[in-house]
Design a protein around this nucleic acid. Sequence first.
DNA 1: GTGAAAGCGCTAACAC
DNA 2: GTGTTAGCGCTTTCAC
Lengths: 336, 336
Amino acid sequence: MSRREPTIYDLARLTKTSPSSVSAILNGTWKSRRVGEETANRVLELAKELKYTPNRQASGLRRKRSGLIGMIIPMHDNRFFSAMSQTFERLARDRHLYPIVVSTLRDPKLEAETARTLISYQVEFLLVTGATAPDAVSRICTHHGIAHLNVDLPGKLAPSVISDNRWGARELTTRLIARSSAPRSSQRNRFCFVGGIPGDYNTVGRIEGFSEAVVEAFGGMDHVDVDACGYDADQAEAAIRAIYKRLGGLPRGLFVNSTIALEGVVRFLKTLSLDEVRQCAIGSYDWDPFATCLSFPLLMVRQDILGLLGKAFEIIDSGKFDSSEIIQVRPELVEA
Amino acid sequence: MSRREPTIYDLARLTKTSPSSVSAILNGTWKSRRVGEETANRVLELAKELKYTPNRQASGLRRKRSGLIGMIIPMHDNRFFSAMSQTFERLARDRHLYPIVVSTLRDPKLEAETARTLISYQVEFLLVTGATAPDAVSRICTHHGIAHLNVDLPGKLAPSVISDNRWGARELTTRLIARSSAPRSSQRNRFCFVGGIPGDYNTVGRIEGFSEAVVEAFGGMDHVDVDACGYDADQAEAAIRAIYKRLGGLPRGLFVNSTIALEGVVRFLKTLSLDEVRQCAIGSYDWDPFATCLSFPLLMVRQDILGLLGKAFEIIDSGKFDSSEIIQVRPELVEA
DNA sequence: GTGAAAGCGCTAACAC
DNA sequence: GTGTTAGCGCTTTCAC
């Protein structure tokens, strides 16, 4: 327990070589250093025997890089972001970078603080995912010369890779319209949008896509039919209830902006007859495997996580962090 | 970009003090060092102006601690583990430890390798959550003198904090039995268990609890009624289909061992009439918010994540890592 | 009250 | 082919 960890000095002493040789051997750098094969083996063997573990703080300090790549996300406890973490880890490891994922709870202060802390641990790159204030993080990173980029929500001071919300929403809506049929009541012959936050970048894009599709099919759209009531099941439940009351029934189609909102919507739909619900073409922007458990058909937009992070790592690989280009990645549509 | 980051030497030079004073001031250690208030302010101000950020690799190297606490989990992309990550972060931060969560995909080799890497970054503590081979990780940690403990799945070489699976399963089953009623066919007057892996520690405990409750209520249990078919929706779907065929209908009650298995079960239940399904008392070991969307009542076991990690951090706070005690934390029961 | 200096474990010139 | 040495940026003992 209190046994000092062996260092390269110990290895050098015990194998009668020098620290520099040991270092080179351990790092596989012995192309440049023409170290004797026999010496190398001796060292490697002893290292294994002693279970030598390099001290990366020391190594990082010396070479001024840590081998760390950070990603900040709003929260772990969410299907989308946890899938991001999973894929991020894999892509980072492929590049021999050690991934650190930290959540910042949509709190701009915590975002900035986390960025600073990660920088103090000398992360080499930082992915800023779904940040509330990405530009503040960018300013910090830029000041410290840390290569970084935005994912999921764009910023103005670094490259951004985001979902093509507008395309996804348009496509989802168009397909819903195609599979729907006009209800008896012309009053209810409309599509409604529920969920999300009015100012939110993603919501804005989705409303745009939704509107485009509706206008194209119906020749116009009533703004009353868009209710960005928040990302919350209860609010969504209230929203759909209000729609139902206003129209005297369900609309021809419904665009639910997130699975959390979908929860609330379904809570309300459960109070209706299945036949009534099946008359309404329902889609959700966001994917949840549990949706297969619903008793009515549901069309979902599933974000292309590998596509998003793949593009992000392309930028990392290329080293071009200076643009503030926005790359859009199309999501896919999935039947429940 | 290439501007060298300011160090305490720069701050010392510019404020005409010494690195040691700057260090003390920046660390708030100036109780021990009786440093002049005025000097302190000068330094603090300049540090802010220059956006000085300490280099934690250097500091960690010197003081032989990193301020890092690691947790390995099987995967991010899972409700239970991602909730663990979320809570872990909070509890770690409360203790001024910086949390690093890494997934190891239930792969013993990756678990060991990850432990070694985290150790090389000098983590001060390691939580080993849901590990396939916790003892192998323990051996590595012990060798390097790293305080660590197991969570969710127990090991023999470190303290473990786990869910009381047996209690939870027994309670769930007992309540399901209480709310159920005998079907017309006596052949179907039984409870079935679906999902999980036969050898798996958690599944074993849950089957025990399930059996106890069934035996108590019915005076016996048929082993045919327990099908640990795997943690997989398709397998669970096949399992419930087989049960249905064998019994000529649904059993009196059903214990589904995980929400992923529940998905498969629901897929099958959707093919039946709602009335038929409502006749069967269904429970799931594991919680998912989406379950509120189901059209039949469901009783769920929700693991007490804060309870589990709270206990784990109690051990960390107390510094007693030498026992291999197993602490059990009771889950709670939740109505869908 | 403050400064000088040693050294944490490692890497990379540079010397031989 | 191999060893010596000077730091990386920080903390901490010790001296004044």
